[in-house]
């Protein structure tokens, strides 16, 4: 390669390395702040700020969902397999919300360690399959999505 082109190549590589390092450092410094939500374990350990709105994500624990018969009030537990967090919410739940499915809730954790949610989002996994296949896999599939901790 001709000397001047070699020099330009070095500049191009330098630009790439320098900008990658800079952005890498920024991303590394922001670290946890880039996370969209806290896990129930993190909240149990006190890693989430208190008294300000936070988001928590986890599986909706089977059998924990309680609906008020006269209003839109609901209460349920979210779990990451280690810790659980009680959530109270008043409003319409997303279509894909359900027990054994992942959900993300936003709100403030009160003095009783209950998250008073102002927003509930359903988080679906990366698996796609026809209804017949899901039925055939039956309980095995439902358990696999119920126990998955990698959300």
């Amino acid at each position: 390669m001709h000397a001047i082109r070699k020099q330009r190549l070095q500049w191009v590589i330098f630009t790439l390395v320098a900008s990658s390092t800079a952005i890498g450092l920024v991303v590394y410094t922001l670290g946890q702040n880039i996370n969209y939500f806290y896990t129930p374990s993190q909240i149990a350990r006190g890693e989430a700020p208190l008294g300000v709105p936070v988001r928590a994500g986890g599986m909706v624990v089977r059998g924990s969902l309680v609906r008020d018969s006269e209003s839109l009030d609901v209460a349920f537990d979210v779990s990451d397999g280690v810790a659980q967090l009680r959530v109270e919410y008043s409003g319409i739940l997303p279509d894909l919300f359900g027990e054994g499915q992942a959900a993300i809730v936003a709100g403030v954790v009160d003095a009783d360690a209950i998250l008073q949610a102002t927003e509930v989002l359903a988080k679906h996994d990366e698996n796609y399959m026809p209804p017949e296949v899901a039925d055939a896999m039956g309980e095995a599939y439902r358990q696999s999505i119920g126990s998955g901790g990698d959300y």
């Binding site: 880039i34 996370n35 969209y36 939500f37 806290y38 896990t39 994500g57 993300i104 989002l121 988080k123 679906h124 996994d125 990366e126 698996n127 796609y128 990698d150 959300y151």
Partner: peptide, 10 residues
């Protein structure tokens, strides 16, 4: 790398 609402790659 981070907790996101978006699911992992299919």
């Amino acid at each position: 790398w981070w907790h996101t609402l978006h699911q992992p790659a299919t």
